[in-house]
Design a binder for these strands. Structure first.
Lengths: 192, 192
DNA sequence: TGAAATTATGGTCAGCTGACCATTTTTAGC
DNA sequence: GCTAAAAATGGTCAGCTGACCATAATTTCA
């Protein structure tokens, strides 16, 4: 049904073929144009999303009109606004496509059902949650301790692929620095 | 065995008495003096910790010697360094007592066993993880978008109890601002 | 391909922020 | 309660950072 996704699921190693089919069958595919939103701040996040191709970002527009980016979601990753999804309350953030993308989405009730039916999927999801927890911790520590230059350096190390796919404006919005500062850092690095 | 802890576990509503006894029996209590460490950066976090009384903090000392605080853990809350605990690798952070405290601790293997034996405990832990995830998201968004004053305001709203229990120095280390800036904010607010 | 939109760079300047230091106040712990 | 340690405040200053604006470069998409 969705061969790339099924390959991804199989990569875990212990997912039964029947479970893969069950999961895949409940997924609804959707194409996104550049800048198209999956949902907007204020709406409730009702779906779990898997990115088959392209690149999404989760962002918030502050009162002053500035964009802040919580997360990038490239191909073969999952995304949603976790608090909105868990509690079915309006989201503070929007999720949209940075590049033309193809996603799969599951209704929350379908995915919840799958989680109880397929223990391997539950385990799979728990691993993703753990990875996300570790990364959030790291990001919080970085935000407390690192200079803008160190934040950028870490970003380059951690996400070397993103550099060419993202406008600098978005990298700045992810790092919590102004694009001016980011430009200065890059300019200074060229001098070396 | 540890009546306060057992009361806490019961507060969830659906924890069988037998499970409560099992969990409680495997806990090792420990008293901490002020500033005493549970473990230091560089060590492996081998225990899951429940704070019965007092107040702990999870912190990191950066290369420049500055302290950065990832988390405060008051009575009736849990703590550990999640990445070090999950993967049994050396921790980047230390956990220590801000106030004289009493904690319970479980060896990882004991707690892992309990999680498989007691489904209600697993559910309980998952709820805690979800809450933690939501809070981390909020904190990352705040770190990206809020001014120092807004960060402090949010801290006061979110943790009104901590204000009188913590030196300002630690609040600054939690917010990622200098104590000088924090003093300025508080001074400005007095003028109003 | 070509026009329009988006993005990146650069200049300038104000002001927020942190570093450093001294002093005062508060707290801890015997 | 008393003494030593820790914490908070305040002054000063340099410089990093962001806001604003204009211009150049790049990209998008029709």
């Amino acid at each position: 049904m969705h061969p790339e996704f099924e390959t991804y699921l199989r990569s875990g190693g212990d997912m039964p073929e029947e479970a893969i089919r069950r999961i895949s069958d409940l997924a609804v595919p959707r194409k996104l144009r550049r800048n198209e939103l999956v949902f907007s701040a204020g709406e409730i996040c009702r779906h779990k999303i898997f990115v088959m191709s392209g690149l999404l970002h989760t962002f918030n527009i502050s009162a002053g009109g500035n964009q802040h980016i919580l997360q990038f979601s490239p191909e073969n990753s999952w995304t949603l606004d976790v608090e909105s999804y868990d509690r079915q309350i309006p989201s503070q953030v929007s999720i949209g496509a940075v590049e033309p993308s193809v996603i799969l989405s599951w209704q929350k009730r379908d995915f919840d059902m799958l989680l109880t039916e397929v223990p391997q999927l539950k385990k799979f999801a728990e691993d993703l949650i753990a990875r996300n927890t570790h990364y959030s911790r790291k990001r919080i520590l970085l935000s407390l301790s690192a200079t803008p230059e160190e934040k950028y350096e870490d970003f380059v190390q951690t996400f070397p692929n993103y550099l060419s796919r993202l406008p600098l404006r978005m990298i700045a919005a992810y790092l919590g620095i102004s694009i001016k500062t980011l430009t200065r850092i890059r300019h200074a690095q060229l001098q070396r």
